[in-house]
Amino acid sequence: MQQHSSPWVRRLLIGLTAVFLILFLAVPLIFVLVQSFSRGLGVYLSAITDTFALQALALTLVTVLIAVAVNTIFGLFAAWNLTRYRYFGYKIVNTFIDLPLSVSPVIAGLIFLLTFGRASPIYPLLTAAGVRVVYAIPGIVLATIFVTFPYVSRELIPVLDARGTDEEEAAALMGASGPVIFRRITFPHIKWALLYGVVLCSARALGEFGAVAVLSGRLRGRTLTLPLYIESLYQEYSYAPAFAVSSILVVLAIVILVARAAVEHKGDKRGEL
């Protein structure tokens, strides 16, 4: 279609968009990379191969892995449940799933502190069983699961809603069992959306800070995730090492964005996103 708007409006709007995005997104990104090498390659390498940095990275990866696994299982069941059946209360369930998106990360941390911490009624039981949740790794994992809880289901629900239930019903009437229907009919349609959800979920889990900050005991090498470790470096004015470790996360963020674009492109071509 022809453009109604005059060329200078067009130029102005494109210019505004470019300046805004470059100023707010590209400049900080490049700044992190520049700063991380500001003290030379030696400082950079020693910062990212520091034992504490590697331990933080390991804890972060384990946390991400568990959170993504749990939320993928949940996402698949919840998306199936909320799009294939209509029952009293399904809308409420749908709203509840999205709650973590509107809860401040700090509050997300606080609720697990209240549930499992010293003030909790189950605290004596946990102590008796020798389980430490708060200021330990289980708390970090739980908080991460909470903040990323809706990420997979939210990507699947629109796709399943748009597909409708005709094919699954036909299969069910012909006697296919639930797992067969899911594997042969549903899954092929949602695999790109699922991958997209997993990518988003990993990204958020990787970078989670507020919730984890409340529940981490901040023991270096024990309960510091990568973002917390970076914060502790920054607080000590070790700027170059802080940015060096950050550059790992920046590179991961770029990988995630590229993966996201690739997944979306693939899904788009097949009309499945």
């Binding site: 997104l25 900080p28 990104l29 700044f31 992190v32 700063q35 988003l200 990204a203 958020r204 990787l206 970078g207 989670e208 800070f209 507020g210 990568l226 973002p227 917390l228 970076i230 914060e231 920054y234 802080a242 940015f243 950050s246 996360l249 920046v250 991961l252 963020a253 770029i254 995630i256 964005l257 996201r260």
Partner: peptide
Amino acid sequence: ELPFALPTVVAGMA
């Protein structure tokens, strides 16, 4: 979508 992918601490520091 960079703000979704980049950890908030890193953004905050920068």
